[in-house]
Design a protein around this nucleic acid. Structure first.
Length: 286
DNA sequence: GTCCAGGTGGTCA
DNA sequence: TGACCACATGGA
């Protein structure tokens, strides 16, 4: 069976860092499609993960792109800790997280759904969408896995269809986002797509604000020039910089100071704060 | 039963 | 520009 090894990848951390919602945990391994190929991933050692093919055609280029394999994460984490010593505890906690480059349409729908929502519910809605409207891409231990529906199928979905998926008040946002998508000319093959262009075009969609646009740019277009600020990152900024975090000018300067790795800094802040809160809950419940 | 969630749009000062 | 509120839903 075709397999491959990915370094500097902690599967549990990466798949529970709020950037991806479709990896299924089955008996010590993770399953999901990348493109239209179903893969299984298994952690074999600290930072090493093994990829194996379950169904479809093995695609090295798709894996390289999805797992962001051209970057040396070990060095990047070291550099963040060196340049910003206050973040060193968060760096060590988050080390092993890679920023995934996922399907841009899936990210658009996922992060519109994410507003004022719980992660388990986002996961469930996306799974139901694929199950009801997408193509089956293979099965593992009797469990079927589905791909994102084709654009033509999505474009025919109504508000009621999305309500039935549990989208709630975001249902009309999803319908109009799908309808407007072609006019935004956000195709990945477009040559002039810098982060600012992507974000500005996404902001034209009703239901997409700065946070959601930044997440789509990061996780769907692979732009590391953004720094999505949500409730957890707000908590993190306050935790590190105190009252100064309320000062927009200060925070803007601080984020710029994170340089080319600001997107990863954002992600490790998110993970660190969220895991920290989980630890507290666990301690209380003991 | 109540609270809350990887926010956003609308309204009003 | 900033502060407030409503928004649908279901898990904790």
């Amino acid at each position: 069976m075709k397999t491959s090894i990915i370094t500097d990848l902690d599967l549990a951390k990466t798949f529970h860092s709020g950037q991806v919602f479709n990896w299924d945990f089955v008996e010590g391994a993770y399953l999901a499609p990348i493109g239209s190929t179903l893969y299984l991933l298994r952690q074999i050692d600290g930072g090493l993960a093994e990829v194996s093919l379950i169904n479809g055609e093995w695609d090295d280029e798709a894996l390289r792109c999805y797992f962001n394999l051209d970057r040396n994460y070990s060095e990047i984490y070291n550099e963040i800790a060196r340049e910003h010593p206050e973040l060193s505890a968060a760096v060590e906690r988050a080390r092993g997280i890679r920023l995934l480059k996922q399907d841009e349409t899936e990210m658009l729908l996922t992060f519109i759904l994410s507003q004022n929502n719980h992660i388990p519910r986002i996961k469930r809605s996306m799974y139901e969408l694929k199950k009801l409207y997408g193509m089956e891409l293979g099965t593992y231990q009797g469990q079927p896995y589905y791909g994102l529906p084709e654009y033509e199928v999505l474009s025919e979905m109504t508000e009621r269809d999305f309500l039935e998926l549990g989208a709630g008040y975001r249902a009309p946002y999803l319908v109009s986002a799908i309808r407007e998508l072609p006019d935004l000319e956000l195709s990945l093959s477009a040559p002039d797509l810098d982060a600012e262009t992507i974000v500005n075009r996404l902001l034209k969609i009703n239901g997409v604000g700065p946070k959601v646009a930044a997440c789509i740019a990061l996780f769907g277009y692979g732009s590391w020039e953004v720094f999505p600020i949500d409730t957890w990152v707000k908590k993190a900024l306050k935790y590190y910089y105190g009252e100064a975090a309320e000062d927009k000018v200060f925070i803007k300067k601080k984020i710029r100071g994170f340089g080319p790795y600001k997107a990863l800094v954002q992600q490790l802040m998110f993970y660190y704060m969220r895991e920290g809160e989980r630890d507290e809950r666990r301690t209380k419940n003991q």
